[in-house]
């Protein structure tokens, strides 16, 4: 092949995320995957899949799961409302006892844990501040952030985060049109349109982070800011905090401001509000586009995608845990 003619494009996204929003069947035939629903039968090249997000009623054959497992492709499942219900997390191939021990050590040692918990909150807060200043909204995030250094328990750190986030949502409301204001943050179920998008987006991002963690040696259940409880990938919750403002909130604001998402993209119930099918598809398309968007990375000196930024964050955490380099959270620099 003529490599001289190749452009250095820096974006290694040859594997894509697939988002299944309709009901159907995922099966394997001759080492490739087929998605079949009432309207179509689509072969999906196995070497082209990064991960799958499933929002419809999906039937999967065990042969399909075996193939996905062999290729290390996770599937994330969401229920009809877009709430995360679970993942097919293939057998791990990147195992490191050393990293897991270091991860646990940083939870057990109170000072080490607080340091990381604070870093995640600081990262989240500084990204929230970037979002607000992008829209020219004054805010007191920096002042609240000063309380972080005096918070000596994880609960205190969480409280600082909660206060910042609630001020942040209030501040965002000042630039949102009537009808799209957040008001009070409501979950399960969200009660208005923007709350619906925040919930949907946060679940989506959480799954994206799970995929990235799957591709590292980190154990996704050992976390610092969130309690490492059972039955959830709480490290993905920690890392999601940092990326919510940049990836999800900015996107929601832009979808609203550009009128790309309208009231008819939601299902309005008595006391709930959810994205309907057209809304979900619009949201997912925009999310996928943004994950693939690239920014010039200062230290690496090359372009990296948003998706890659999440992986780099996991790598930075590993370096911190094994004592190579102190963790500095990602803060949007553009």
């Amino acid at each position: 092949m003529n490599s001289a003619g190749l452009e250095q494009c820096g974006m290694i996204m040859t594997r894509k995320n697939y988002y299944i929003t309709t009901d159907g069947l995922l099966k394997r035939n001759e080492n490739t995957l087929y998605f079949i629903n009432k309207d179509l039968k689509r072969p999906i090249p196995i070497n082209k899949i990064y991960s799958i997000y499933s929002y419809g009623a999906l039937t999967i054959s065990s042969q399909a799961l075996n193939l996905l497992s062999k290729e290390g492709i996770p599937i994330h499942f969401f229920n009809r409302y877009g709430f995360y219900s679970g993942s097919f997390y293939p057998r791990e191939t990147l195992l490191s006892g050393d990293v897991i021990i270091k991860q646990a050590e940083h939870v057990i040692d109170h000072d080490k844990r607080i340091e990381l918990a604070r870093s995640f909150v600081r990262g989240a807060a500084l990204n929230m501040r970037r979002v607000l200043s992008y829209y020219g909204i004054e805010n007191g995030i920096s002042d609240t952030l000063m309380d972080l250094d005096s918070s000596n328990s994880v609960t205190d750190v969480m409280n600082v985060e909660g206060r910042i986030r609630s001020d942040y949502y209030n501040a965002i409301d000042s630039i949102l049109p009537e009808g799209f204001r957040i008001g009070k943050r409501t979950r399960r179920p969200p009660e208005n349109m923007t709350n619906a998008m925040i919930s949907f987006g946060n679940s989506l991002l959480y799954s994206t982070v799970i995929t990235e963690l799957y591709n590292t040696q980190l154990n996704p259940t050992i976390s610092y800011l969130h309690e490492p409880f059972e039955r959830r990938y709480s490290l993905a919750l920690d890392l999601s905090e940092i990326f919510k403002p940049t990836l999800i909130d900015r996107m929601i604001i832009s979808l609203i401001k550009k009128k790309a998402i309208k009231a008819e993209d939601f299902e309005h119930g008595m006391n709930h509000c959810l994205l309907n099918n057209s809304g979900k598809r619009k949201f997912l398309a925009e999310y996928d586009r943004r994950l693939g968007k690239t920014v010039k990375h200062r230290e690496l000196g090359r372009k990296v995608s948003y998706r890659r930024l999440i992986r780099l964050e996991a790598y930075k955490l590993i370096k911190h845990l094994i004592g190579q380099k102190s963790y500095e959270p990602f803060v949007m620099w553009w």
Binding site: E30, N31, T32, P43, P45, I46, N47, K48
Partner: peptide, 10 residues
């Protein structure tokens, strides 16, 4: 065909 289906989009 079945080989290319694993690598590229039909």
């Amino acid at each position: 065909k079945s080989y290319l289906r694993t690598e590229l989009h039909w």
